[in-house]
Structure formats: C-alpha cells, structure tokens
Design a binder for these strands. Structure first.
Lengths: 229, 229
DNA sequence: CCTGGTTGTGTGACCTCGGCACAGTACGGG
DNA sequence: CCCGTACTGTGCCGAGGTCACACAACCAGG
C-alpha cells in the first residue's frame, strides 16, 4: 500500500486506535470506490433495535454520529451493557458473524439518534480479504471488545456494587453530571433499579452526590474514587 | 486447494466443526511441511499454568490429548471457567492476541495431563494469511468462544444457581457420574464451594444425587433436568 | 392552570447467595 | 496405625436481587 499508515495508526493509543474513521483513508482508491458505490447512509432514532441475536447480518454498520449500545437482556427484563460503539467504530460482533458464518449473539440498540454507514457483508468480506489495514483494524477492534468482555465478567462476578456504580458514574460523567435514569445505570452494571436507587440515596445522604430526576450530580469525586479501591 | 474439505468439514455439527485435528489435513503440502519443521510437541502435567494475562504469546497451542481450561481468577481467590479446549482444538484467545498484537486476557491451565502441539506465532500468522481453511477455522473457533462468553454472562447474571449447577452436572456427567470436587464445580459456575455443597446436599436429601468424596452420582437425571426450565 | 397518565424514584419485607468460621470426615504416605 | 492434607457440612451474617407499593416529577390535552 503506497498510502500505508498516513496517520500513524499503528502507534495510536488504545482509545484512538479502535475509532479510526480514518481507517477509510487508508484504503486504496479501488476499495474506496467500492465502499462509495455500495455503502448506505442510515439515520436511526434513539432507542431503536439495530441487531438481535440470530440476525443474518447482511450489512455491517459504521457509526458516524451517535452511539450504539451492545447488550444482553434476560427473560426477566434485566439488562447488561456489554460495550458501546462510538463514532468512527464498527461492530466487531457483526464482523465476526459475517466472517465465521455463525449466528449473532447480542442485542444492539441506538442509545441516541445515530447516523450509520451500512456496508454490505459481501463488500466487507472482500475488503477483509484484500486490505491488510481493514483486516488489522477489525482484529484489533475484536481484541479490544473481547478484553472488555473479560473485564465485564470480572466486574459482574468479583466486584461489589458500589465499586462498579462509582466506576460508571466517574466514566460517564460530563463536567460532574451524569444524565441517566437509575434504570439505565442499573443496565450499565447488570444490576437492578432498586439497588442502584438505594446506593445513590446512601451517597446522597453522605453528601457524595446530588440526585434529581434523570440525573446524578457528583458532589465529591474523591469520595467516589475512594470506592474504586 | 486440490484437497479441500476431505472430511466434509463444512457440514459438520457445531461440536465437531471446532474440533478438527483434521484441520491439518486440509493444508497443502507446503504448509504441512512448514508445520512439521516448526511445531513443537509438549507434554504438560495436570494443573500447570500454560498462559497468563499479558503473556506475549510467541506460540499457539493445539491440544492433542488432555484438556486446557481457560478461566478468570479474582483477587479473593474465586474462579470462573470461561471454556475448555478439547483435543483437536486450539486457543482462540491466543490466536486473537497474535493477530491483533494486543495483550492476552485470561489464564489457561491444564486440567489433566496434556499433550500440546506448539506452533510459533510467525508460522501461525503466515498460515492465517495464506490458507483460507486455516483462517476459516480460527474465525469459527473464535465465534463459538465469543458465543460461549455471551452465554456465560447470561448464566452468571441472569440464571439461578441450581439451574447452572444442574446444567454443569448433566453436561460433564459420564455414565451418570461426575468426577469433581465441590470446589471444581464452583469454579465451573463462578460460585463458591460452600454454596455448591449446600445445593448438592439438598439434592441428596431428596434423592436426586448421591455424594461421595470427589464425585457426584446422578440418581435422577429427570429431577435435575427439571431444574433447567 | 388543572388534571390524569406516564415515567422516574424511595423504601420495607423477603429470599438467594457469597464469605467467614469452624467442625467433621475421607484419604494417602510414612 | 497415625498424622497431615485434602475435601465436605453447616450455622451465621451481610450484600444484593425481587416484589409490592407509595409517592413525586413531568407532560399532554382540555
């Protein structure tokens, strides 16, 4: 590839490496034309189901704006977020499903209004075979996601609830505020609404957070961080 | 490939498809020679650590006889089996680690005396690039394992203990007997020894199983199966 | 602006499960 | 046969999930 690694992709940090819309830049002209001709731009409203377990996966999505949430749902209605797909990323599970020919195993829903670039599976496979950069990207993406699953399992099984909740709050906070219902926070850590409510209330009583409908304000980040030990 | 699919690999059931020592048969002569020259035969005793999180993974193992157990361990000593690698299979996590260049994320230990064919990562990568059958095999293997992880998460988070325990007993039983300590059964489902002991004792009292040191005999498979609903 | 439906939150009662402590029991080697 | 080392059994408690229900905030339509 004449145009290999124009943005130093190989040396980016973990966070950037899996989020390269710049990936498309690395393809040669023929491949880019193929994408131009075949890919489809989709607008999807918040809270729509994009994929389900068992789906055939004739296309693979790239998130341009918004966010996809990959999650498992139990019969009893409980829910656990596996990971999120941010702008510039694609869905590693869909990729694996297409490459292996085996069924898809999770729910994917939009967590906000989202713009997707939808690439036909045939084109995806062809690029996977022809373009080393494309192949490398998806293998790295998959590797990160599998790593995420490992940590998720650790969290669910070996870590107590306050720790996981504090972690989510500190991670998802924007200038000290987390916009989410208790229900959504519970889904984030695979717990239940009531338990999250109780934990938050306890923190509010000791002045660590301030609660209002649909949002949690972090009053004392230090106190929360202390939970993480 | 002149010799493609000599054993109908493409049409095997899920259980067989990921367990093809026959995979090696599908490679062309050049590839087979490469393996012969570079692969190394290893004997490993029971209970040895084969891989750890963060390992560089200069080789990838194929199990010839015995069994590898892939698992996570918590700081407090609890343990959860992610999946097992049976004779004829390889380790999908190691493959992903080599292909993506990103760190390895689990423990692998021998659960009995095991013979391994150890293939250097360079050879693995070359075969992955050159041999469609090799590539397809590892993608399918990985896909199954990721599927396993999904079900594992469901089990741990959404399924009650008697159900998971009954499932393990029925799966691992050989002519009505499971040879395992309560500790090992607990690791299988990510629970603790005491809880497993109590559950088994309760089943023994109602005549569903018979307990002795290091083994569980299933007296009434029907009663166990009824747990699975 | 009131008003009733909808969505989010708070809380007590109860149950399952994990952790701790400790006792009791089989096994295996000297 | 005896002792150390695994393995098993069980009471107790605390964390967290479930059920039931009350209440508070928001939102639309009159």
């Amino acid at each position: 590839m004449a145009n290999a690694d124009p943005r130093g992709l190989g040396r980016l940090t973990a966070a950037d490496e899996v989020r390269p819309l710049s990936l498309l830049v690395e393809l040669d002209d023929e491949a880019r034309h193929l994408l131009d001709r075949s890919a489809q731009l989709l607008q999807v409203g918040a809270g729509k189901v994009v994929m389900q377990p068992g789906d055939p996966c004739h296309q693979i999505p790239f998130v341009l704006t918004g966010e996809l949430r990959v999650h498992r749902t139990s019969a009893s209605g409980r829910d656990l977020t596996l990971y999120r797909i941010l702008p510039g990323e694609s869905c590693s599970l869909t990729a694996l499903r297409i490459l292996s020919g085996l069924p898809f195993s999770a729910h994917v829903t939009t967590s906000e209004d989202t713009t997707l670039l939808s690439v036909p599976s045939r084109v995806f496979t062809q690029l996977y075979d022809d373009q080393p950069a494309w192949r490398g990207y998806f293998l790295r993406l998959l590797s990160y996601r599998v790593g995420d699953l490992m940590e998720l399992i650790d969290g669910v099984l070996f870590t107590d609830l306050p720790t996981r909740l504090a972690d989510v709050l500190l991670t998802r906070q924007e200038s000290g505020v987390v916009r989410a219902t208790h229900e959504q926070l519970a889904a984030e850590i695979g717990s239940s609404r009531e338990v999250v409510s109780r934990a938050l209330k306890a923190w509010e009583r000791q002045g660590t957070v301030a609660l209002s409908r649909g949002q949690v304000a972090i009053v004392s980040p230090q106190a929360l961080a202390r939970q993480l030990v």
